[in-house]
Computed example of a mutant assay.
Amino acid sequence: MLEKLWTMTRFLSDSVQKRFNLRIVFFITLLSFLSTLVYFYFIYNPIPTKPDLCRIWENDPNKSNTSLLWWQWACLIEKEIDKPYPYQCQNVKTVGNWYICWDKPYRPRKPCIVYSFGINFEFSFDDAMAERGCTVYSFDPSMGVTDHKHSSRVYFKNMGIGAKDVDDFIPNFDGYVQLTQRWKMRTLKSIRKMLGHENAVIDVLKIDIEIYEWPVVANFLQDEMFQHVRQFLVEWHIFPNEPNRAEFQQMYKSFTELEKVGMKYFYVDSGSRYHHYRYWNSQSDMCYVNTKFKLPSQ
């Protein structure tokens, strides 16, 4: 009797062990399958490049500019960027990590003023402009650094440029913002008033502010801020999930409005372009001179 009981116990134990082993094998197989999917979807081919929606749409015989989708407005923006330079600068100088046109009508004049928005601890442009005798105001609320004098001619402000004045702006998470922050933001009109520059020439206005340039430039146009700016440097961004898709028509309008107010670019550096339904990205550095520049009335 005891022997039969022992045999039955061993049989049950072996059955439980086999079922347990099968579960382990099933779990490992499932994990391997999911790992393979993740590898091929995100790692082996992290950025899909085909089909290129802009190229497909460009060759569409029924293409029109009415009732466009957000990505079609993005294609039109890139088409504008890729046009021949409307201004041919004869004396382009590398200044830090940007380019300045030193042609006589547009070159900075001492005592020159430079506004630089978006630093991320990279002051090469700001320092280089200071070495050329300009007073530079550097702005970046993402660094977590208080207002200070960076060097003899460079003044840092813990503040951002915005489309409206707010004290508790909450930015999106990205490569520069990985914790919840609250920023002080001011329009260019308010910043000029704060610094006593309402009747001053801004020789160079530079913004590299990670997708926020679109509403900010729209605000510049609305407030007529470009008329007393000699040169404008900007990095345009379109990220896979930003800006909001509903804003692209207004983005195109603001972009094309720049030339109407006299801003003509003399340098472009575009890259990271991907036009896929699953991954859309586009970035361009552009440098403009103001062909309708005028001195402020004193």
Rank of each mutant, 00 (worst) to 15 (best):
L2V: 11
E3Y: 12
M8H: 14
M8L: 15
R10I: 07
F11S: 13
S15R: 09
V16Q: 09
V16A: 14
K18A: 12
F20G: 14
L22I: 11
L22D: 15
I24D: 14
V25Y: 15
F26W: 13
F27Y: 10
F27V: 13
F27E: 10
I28T: 09
T29G: 06
L30G: 13
S32P: 01
F33N: 12
S35I: 03
S35W: 01
T36Q: 10
V38D: 14
P46W: 09
P48Q: 13
P51Q: 07
D52K: 04
L53K: 04
R55G: 02
E58C: 02
N59I: 01
D60V: 03
D60G: 04
S64R: 10
N65R: 12
L68R: 03
A74W: 00
I77T: 02
E78D: 05
E78R: 01
K79R: 13
I81S: 01
I81Y: 00
D82C: 02
Y85H: 15
Y87C: 09
Q88Y: 08
V92E: 13
T94M: 09
V95N: 06
D103N: 13
D103P: 11
R107T: 13
K110W: 10
Y115T: 02
F117D: 09
F117W: 11
F121Y: 13
F121G: 03
E122S: 08
E122Q: 07
E122A: 11
D127R: 03
A128D: 15
M129L: 12
E131W: 08
R132W: 08
V136Q: 11
Y137L: 07
P141G: 12
S142V: 08
G144H: 13
G144C: 12
V145S: 10
V145G: 04
H148P: 07
H150E: 07
S151P: 08
Y155P: 06
N158E: 14
G160W: 03
I161F: 05
I161C: 05
A163Y: 03
K164E: 14
D165A: 11
D167F: 07
F169C: 07
F169G: 06
P171H: 06
N172V: 07
D174E: 06
Y176D: 10
Q178D: 11
L179V: 15
R186Q: 15
T187G: 07
L188H: 13
M194I: 05
N199G: 06
I202C: 08
D203S: 13
K206H: 09
I209H: 06
I209Y: 03
E210D: 10
E210S: 02
L221F: 03
E224V: 05
L233C: 08
V234N: 01
I238S: 00
I238K: 00
P240V: 02
P240Q: 04
N244T: 01
E247S: 10
F248G: 00
F248K: 00
F248I: 01
F248Y: 14
Q249R: 01
Q250M: 00
Y252L: 09
Y252W: 02
K253D: 03
S254P: 04
F255E: 01
T256Y: 00
L258M: 15
E259W: 01
K260F: 00
G262Y: 05
F266A: 12
Y267F: 15
V268T: 14
D269H: 13
S270K: 12
S270V: 04
G271A: 04
G271L: 01
Y274H: 10
R278S: 14
Y279T: 00
Y279M: 02
D285T: 02
N290I: 01
P296F: 04
S297Y: 07
Q298E: 12
